[in-house]
Computed example of a mutant assay.
Amino acid sequence: MSTENKNRKMKKKELVMILVILAVSAVLYAGSRILFSKPPAKVEISVDGTVIETLDLNKDTELTVEGWNGGTNHIVIKDGTVHVTEASCPDKVCVNQGTIR
């Protein structure tokens, strides 16, 4: 076998190896994009452990939620964040928590 034939076989093997590496890399990249992509940004609002609303954080919204014993919370969704602006409870823990991203 001549040196030229050996070089051609070696170049073909190298080319095949490069193509296999590129194909595996593409599959792994696509798989990671699918598996680790962020889910749609949503927030669940619950009263006494029961989910009453599921809202999209990408849509600016304001709503008032009625809770236990006639209490209310005014919730604002703006620019992908959510916060309680007003609450009828005396301690205002939810208002003082601030903005959630």
Rank of each mutant, 00 (worst) to 15 (best):
E53A: 02
T85Y: 03
S32P: 10
I100A: 00
L63M: 14
R8E: 12
L55M: 13
I34V: 15
V76H: 00
H74Y: 02
A41Q: 07
T3I: 05
L22I: 07
I52F: 09
S25Q: 10
L28Y: 06
N73T: 04
T85M: 00
L35Q: 09
G31L: 12
I34K: 08
N69T: 12
I21F: 11
H74F: 00
T99H: 03
D60Q: 00
L22R: 06
E53T: 02
S88L: 08
V27R: 03
T50R: 15
A41R: 09
K13M: 01
L15M: 14
T85S: 03
L22T: 07
V43D: 07
L22E: 09
T61C: 01
I21D: 13
V16W: 13
G71Q: 14
D79A: 05
S32Q: 11
S25F: 07
V51K: 11
T72F: 04
S2D: 14
L28G: 03
H83I: 01
A41E: 06
K92A: 02
V16T: 15
E66N: 06
R8T: 15
A26D: 08
M1R: 12
C89V: 10
C94K: 02
T50P: 11
G80R: 05
T64M: 05
S37N: 13
L28K: 04
K6S: 03
M1G: 10
V20F: 12
A30I: 13
W68F: 07
M10N: 14
V47K: 08
E4M: 13
L28N: 06
C89H: 08
A87C: 05
L57W: 05
K42N: 09
I52H: 12
G49A: 04
T3Q: 06
H74M: 02
L63F: 11
I21A: 15
K59N: 02
R33A: 07
E14S: 15
L28Q: 05
D56F: 05
K13Y: 02
K9H: 10
V51L: 08
L63C: 12
L22P: 10
L15K: 15
S37H: 11
V20T: 15
I21S: 13
G98H: 00
E4F: 12
E14I: 13
K6L: 04
T72W: 00
L55E: 15
V84T: 06
P90H: 11
E4H: 13
E53Q: 01
N96V: 05
P40E: 14
T54V: 05
G31H: 11
V95P: 02
L22M: 10
S37C: 09
C94L: 04
L55R: 15
T64D: 03
